[in-house]
Structure formats: C-alpha cells, structure tokens
Simulated scan of single mutants.
Amino acid sequence: MADVRTPTTTRTLRRILLAVAIGSLVAVALGVYGGLHQAAGYSIDIGGFSSTQSVKSWLTTLAVLLGVVQLISAMMIYGRIPGPTWAGTLHRWSGRLAVLCVVPVVVHCLYALGFQTYEPRVLIHALLGCFFFGAFTAKMLLLTYKDLPGWVLPVAGGALFCGLVGLWLTSSFWFFTTSGFTF
C-alpha cells in the first residue's frame, strides 16, 4: 500500500510542477495545432463500421471501460479495495490498451476536424481533448519519479479519468443518443 503522507520536498515539488508544465504545454500545443491546421475533413477509417463517428464512439467507449478497470485496479494497488497480486499488471495493461483505443480517435479529430468551436458541446469536447492529452503527458512523466508523495499519481490518474469520461460524454454518449448504437 502506498503511503499518501510522504512529505513533499522542494525537489519533489519542482518535479511535479515540471511535469504539469510540460503537460500544459502539450495541451496548448494540441489546441494551437488543431486551431491552425486546415481540417482535411477525412482520415483513415477502420473497416467494419458504418461511419467514422461510429468507430470513434466505440473506440472511446472501450477506452472508458478500460478507464474503469484502471480506476478499480488503482484502488486495489492503493489498498482501498481488496485485489489480486497482479492488480499492478492489470493497471498497466488496461492503460496501454486504453491509449491504443484513443490514438486513432485523436488522430482523426486533429487531422480531419481540427479544433472546432461552433457549439458549446464541441468546444467543451475540444478543450477536454487537449486537457486529456496534457494530463496523460504529465502522468507519464510523473511515473518516472520514484520519490513522489503517494497522493500525486492518484490525482494525476483521477484527472486523466475525468478528462476521458468528459470526452466520452461530449462525443460517444452524444452520438449514441442521437444516432443509436450503430456499428
């Protein structure tokens, strides 16, 4: 069980702030790129689905389900709920699979659509997309440090999970409620 009471030294605080700053730069860079990039209107599609929106919605839904696995396995790792000894492995692999699910989605969104603001849902979705990948970057950088206080990774993971759920609500949930559960 991780100790959430580890004191934060100046060196540790600098590391945390550096990771957050780099994550913030990634978020801003994605937003700027999405805003300046001339949207192509198309990208590579995955076969077997009726539309690009459908494949994106299902991949994001799978990523959210894997995010729930991440949340539960993290609670096992931190001793909040009982779990198997392989909870850490489950946590790492469910995270890797979730990232693999969202990469084609973000590539399509950035390349084909860009950063759009034509309605509040779309603006919130674009902002959450930038936030999500900024938070992902920060968490991956934080994972490289071994002397962090026990609260840092759960906060970073919680921000990442909230961003992912927000993305799902503003895209997949919206798509499923307006178009149905199509493949």
Rank of each mutant, 00 (worst) to 15 (best):
D3F: 05
D3P: 05
T10L: 15
R11D: 15
R11Q: 15
T12N: 05
T12S: 14
L13A: 13
R14C: 13
L17V: 14
L18S: 14
A21D: 04
I22V: 15
G23E: 06
S24N: 08
A27S: 11
V28N: 06
A29G: 10
G31S: 01
V32F: 10
G35N: 02
G35T: 06
G35Q: 00
G35V: 04
L36Q: 10
A39K: 09
A39I: 04
A40R: 10
A40E: 09
G41E: 09
S43R: 12
G47D: 11
G48M: 04
T52F: 06
S54R: 13
W58K: 09
T60G: 10
T60K: 03
T61A: 12
V64K: 03
L65C: 11
L65H: 04
G67L: 03
V68T: 00
Q70Y: 01
L71I: 14
M76S: 09
Y78L: 11
Y78S: 13
G79C: 05
G83T: 05
P84R: 12
G88Y: 03
R92E: 12
S94K: 02
G95I: 07
A98R: 08
V99T: 14
C101E: 00
V102K: 01
V106W: 13
V107R: 04
L110C: 06
Y111N: 10
G114H: 06
G114N: 04
G114S: 01
F115P: 07
Q116T: 11
T117Q: 13
E119H: 14
E119P: 06
P120D: 06
L123P: 08
I124Y: 05
C130G: 05
F131N: 01
F133D: 02
G134Q: 07
A135S: 13
T137Y: 04
A138M: 03
L141P: 06
L141G: 08
L142R: 06
L143F: 15
L143I: 14
T144K: 15
Y145R: 05
Y145I: 10
L148E: 09
W151A: 10
W151L: 08
L153R: 07
L153G: 00
P154Q: 07
P154F: 06
G158F: 08
A159N: 13
A159S: 11
A159D: 08
L160K: 04
L160P: 03
F161K: 02
G163E: 02
G163K: 00
G163Q: 00
V165H: 02
T170S: 08
S172C: 00
F175H: 03
T177R: 07
T177P: 00
G180R: 00
G180D: 02
T182E: 13
T182S: 14
F183C: 12
